[in-house]
Amino acid sequence: MNPSDRPGNRDDEQIVLSSVDEFLAWGKEHSLFYLLFATACCGIELMQAGGPRYDVDRLGMIPRATPRQADLMIVAGTITHKMASRVRTLWEQMTEPRWVVSMGSCANSGGPFSKWSYSVLNGIDKYVPVDVYIPGCPPRPEALIDGVMALRDRVRRYRTLGERDTTPHVVAGHDAPFGGHCKVPDFGKPPEGKA
C-alpha cells in the first residue's frame, strides 16, 4: 500500500479547520505555566503536587520562576497585609491572558485566621481577580488538580476579542478519606428550625 493511502495520511484527513482563537486557546489550555509562588502551608501541597506522585507536569503545568513567563498564579497560602501589595505587583507583571487560582481557605477568605488575626488579609480577591477558588486547609493535590481542570475549561472558552468569563468558580468540597478506623460519634439530628 502506498504510504499516502494509509488511514490518517490521506490528504483530506490531514487538514484541521479551526479559528485562530480556538487554536490558541487549545494551546494555552495544555500549557498552563504557573508561577512558582508559595507563601504558606498550601505551598507544600503545591510542591507535592509537582512531585513524582501527582506530577502536574503531565498536564503541561511547568513552574516558572518569573511572573513574566507565567500564565497562571496559584496563590497558595496565607496572604498578610504586608504581602498583599507584592502579590498585586506580581500579578501586574504577568502578561495577559492571566489566570488566578486561590488555593486554600486562607487565600479564599482568611481561613482560620479571619477572626482573631490582626495582620492577615481576609481573601486575596480584594487585590487580584480570582478565577477558581479551592477550599481546604490545605487542599489535597487532587483538589488542586480538580481546580486546574475547572480552569482549563475556562481557558478553552477564552477568546482574545470576546468577553471574559469573570464569574468565580468554586471547587466543590472534597470528602477527605477519613481514617476509616475511627468511630465518628453520632451527634443526632440538628434541632428543628435552626439553620
Binding site: 497585609h81 479571619s114 477572626k115 490582626y118 481576609n122 487585590y127
Partner: peptide, 21 residues
C-alpha cells in the same frame, strides 16, 4: 485591631463575628 489597612477593609463584605476582638 485596625478596621482597614492600606485602604482595604480587614473583614470581608458582610462578614461579622460575634465576640470578635
Amino acid at each position: 485591631y485596625p478596621a482597614t489597612y492600606n485602604g482595604v477593609a480587614h473583614l470581608r463584605d458582610g462578614q461579622h463575628f460575634e465576640a470578635a476582638p
